[in-house]
Design a protein around this nucleic acid. Sequence first.
DNA 1: TTTCCACTCCCCAGATATAGCGAGGGCAAC
DNA 2: GTTGCCCTCGCTATATCTGGGGAGTGGAAA
Lengths: 240, 240
Amino acid sequence: MLGTDKQLESILSALEQADTLDGMQSVSEALRDHYKVDHLVYHWVDSAGDQYGCGTYSDAWQDQYLSQNYVRIDPVVQGCYQRFHPVDWKRLDWSSKAAREFLRTSAEYGVGNQGYSIPIRGPNGQFALFTVNHNCDDAEWTKFTEENRRDLILIAHYFNEKALEFEPGRQPIQQSSLSPREIDAMTLLAMGYSRAQVANSLSISEHTLRVYIESARFKLGALNTTHAVARAMSRGLIVV
Amino acid sequence: MLGTDKQLESILSALEQADTLDGMQSVSEALRDHYKVDHLVYHWVDSAGDQYGCGTYSDAWQDQYLSQNYVRIDPVVQGCYQRFHPVDWKRLDWSSKAAREFLRTSAEYGVGNQGYSIPIRGPNGQFALFTVNHNCDDAEWTKFTEENRRDLILIAHYFNEKALEFEPGRQPIQQSSLSPREIDAMTLLAMGYSRAQVANSLSISEHTLRVYIESARFKLGALNTTHAVARAMSRGLIVV
DNA sequence: TTTCCACTCCCCAGATATAGCGAGGGCAAC
DNA sequence: GTTGCCCTCGCTATATCTGGGGAGTGGAAA
């Protein structure tokens, strides 16, 4: 547990003082050695498929993952996106053919059979994963995750805190939040209403509604209504 | 620190076994006594304005907060919504007239002058706050928050985990999967491309694309394209 | 006080999406 | 070897959305 482990303390101090991605990389390697696991990875899953991370997976696997756009079929990402609590890979849905194929390929690149991933969310819909990976039997893995669950949650938190520090454009608190009416409009559009229906629901003319949509589109830097709704959702401005 | 404190351990065990909001309420009272602070509050902030929570603020203050819709002006909520890391209330922006008025009123209801709040985010844009509040001088408060920062992050995490358990409709994760092409289509639409652009990107005719969109709409039970994209996003089928 | 911003309303034309038909090849599972 | 799903292509007409203008109110901040 934290506080009872001098070595872990010093590693976390190093993380807090890291000021580059390389620094985080070193910390993940140190943590991997500390916990005696095969891999330890922080993975930022960003919009538009831009994603980065740091960790101990091989470069070859990272390249493969990105080039094959595995994020779209990775059950770990899919599963964590729906959850709040950390999840053991065994509890995910590996039934689809693509998922099994993905698993098989990952093993070829040195990814272990056991995994434990923690979803992390930041402002504006930011989403990331913190994963510990190992090769061992179920009993051993269960013991490990139960013993270290709390540590891992905290470490995940600290990794994300660092990653957000590095990310430009995240810190300047973009105050381009939507007005109440704009949020109403975006919300109802996301619920599938047509403009006429939305206007009716809000008891305003369709013309007025259009101004809100355009205004929201402008604020969100969106190219069209669908884009605006998508951005509003991913930034957590509306909930559907 | 966790793991070095038997009393805190037992309180957290009680939290893990809580199965009602009242149970969480009791835990927050126990934690307040444990940390010897004035208040300790978990506050679920829903976009629709539906909000609930549990904690040790007086009923009168909670009623006042809800009836006055303070969530819209509360600098703690506003500030935490843009941040990832825990934040001391002193670092928030209290400059607006509404904020100062709010602060003055809160003091009348027994809210202390010092506060430390942790933002928490779950799937589908869920957002909550975990706050510790006290009446003391700055030095004492800084010492307290620095010493207990890690504990508080973890406790916040556990509170939210419980709250999500209680929330109906959050658990059922239905996986109606889209085909790869449908996911491509939905993703590109969410990125703001028009149908013509999407068709071009995928190197297919616009007619074919339309079939995918319709098929995805059908699978998602969506009324139109925007709705389909919104549903695909909130179900984590596409990552934008 | 003035300046900003949110909110409300109006017209019109062109671009885009939706809805209705239908058709064939490939691949996998039952 | 039939059934079902995925991928691909076509046409046409109507509904809806987008983009270009302009205009007035009220409230809150500088």
